[in-house]
Amino acid sequence: MAISAFLYSYILVFSWIVGIYAAYEPTSRFRMQSVNQTCNVFFGRTNVHARKDGRGVNFSLDKLSGSGIVSKNKYYYGFFNGAIKLPAGFTSGVVVAYYLSNADAFPHNHDEMDIELLGHEKRGRWVLQTNIYGNGSVKTGREEKFHLWFDPTKGFHNFSILWNIHHVVFMVDDIPVREVVHDAAISSIYPSKPMSVYTTIWDGSEWATHGGKYPVDYKYAPFVASMRGIEMEGCVWNQKNHTHLLCSRRTLSSLDPVGGEQFAKLSSRQRAGMEWARRNHMFYSYCQDKKRYRVLPLECREK
């Protein structure tokens, strides 16, 4: 079958975008870690099944419960990655989340950075949503949504968060899809307190499907997500001494795992990749939602 000129051009551009990351690949800079050594069960213990070698874990959602794990350490700044494979079939209302939060320690003033994978009412489709807030600023949702450019049910794909004094970067397979620069406009809500790393699967019907219009259909349960390739390299929080171990908060220091020059700003190649992802695959940004916000948040007005 002949391939259209448009599709051929798209494939060439996509191949170029993916190819430019072969030399960088943030996920290749840090060591993979064992689930057993780095994480505890967060909830739904009977639905969490770790591999014997500790390198991977399956999470399931059924009528009785969702499930999830949480890091044993809390981190201040770092690079956090999980290679995730999502459930196939009709998954409307199913939410698989990879995120950092300190809601347990600061229930009324917590920080959070989210990668949320939302099951879609159309069979086999998933939506990527990112969100960020600090100091309890949950009333102002800072969501952005993307259609994925691959089938996340066919294999494992890397979902990553880079967090330091300079910016927060959300990445998919090492391609940045969103950068939140730490500047004056966003400083009051920039995540600033140590956080744990979570991976969960749960029923988000009311929240993720237009008020429950397309709820989870449990006749297709259990819904099983898999994760491997865990990377958590950050400034570990010493809860006894209330200090950051091997951490530099204000300088480009080699003591901080993500404090060097290469993590201070996006490279030209990374920026090109992010522009490609946002131009071709982002379909919602809170900064463009004037129905939701009569007055846009400050960081949107200054762009």
Rank of each mutant, 00 (worst) to 15 (best):
H167R: 13
W149L: 02
D173M: 06
W163G: 01
D217H: 12
D114M: 07
G134S: 03
W163F: 08
K213L: 15
Y133P: 01
T153W: 11
W207G: 07
V169H: 00
P194A: 06
G155I: 08
H182V: 04
P191H: 11
Y218D: 09
V197I: 14
V216C: 08
G155E: 15
L117A: 05
E143Y: 11
P191V: 09
I186Q: 06
L128S: 05
D217S: 12
E179L: 10
K139P: 00
Y220G: 03
S196P: 00
V168T: 14
D151P: 01
A208N: 07
R142C: 02
W163Y: 08
S160Y: 03
R123Y: 08
I161W: 03
Q129D: 12
P176G: 10
W202N: 04
A185W: 14
P194C: 09
E206N: 06
N131A: 06
W163P: 01
V168N: 07
D183L: 00
R123A: 04
F170C: 02
K213P: 00
P191A: 12
V138M: 00
H210A: 12
K122G: 03
I115A: 04
G155H: 10
V127E: 14
W126P: 02
S188I: 01
E179N: 08
H167Q: 15
F159L: 02
W163E: 03
L148C: 01
S160Q: 10
L162M: 09
F170N: 02
T140P: 01
I201N: 07
I186H: 13
N135A: 11
S192K: 13
H157L: 03
D183N: 15
K193L: 12
D151S: 12
P191Y: 12
H157S: 09
G155V: 00
I165P: 00
V197R: 04
V197L: 15
H167W: 09
H157T: 01
V168K: 03
P222A: 14
D183R: 13
T209Y: 11
L128W: 06
R178I: 11
Y220I: 05
V197Y: 00
G119D: 08
V197E: 12
H167T: 06
F146I: 06
Y220S: 10
M113Q: 03
A208W: 03
G119F: 04
L117K: 01
I115D: 04
N135I: 03
V168S: 02
G155W: 10
V168E: 08
I175M: 14
Y220C: 05
M195G: 07
Y218N: 09
V197N: 11
P215R: 12
P152V: 02
V138L: 09
H167P: 02
K122A: 07
V127R: 10
D217Y: 13
E116V: 07
P152E: 07
K122Q: 10
V169F: 00
G136V: 05
P215Q: 11
V180Q: 10
T140R: 12
Y214V: 08
V138E: 13
F156R: 10
V180K: 05
F156K: 13
T200L: 15
T209S: 13
K193A: 14
Y214W: 15
V169P: 00
D151C: 00
A184K: 15
E179G: 00
G155D: 15
V172F: 07
N135Q: 11
K145M: 14
M113L: 10
W207L: 11
L118I: 15
V169L: 06
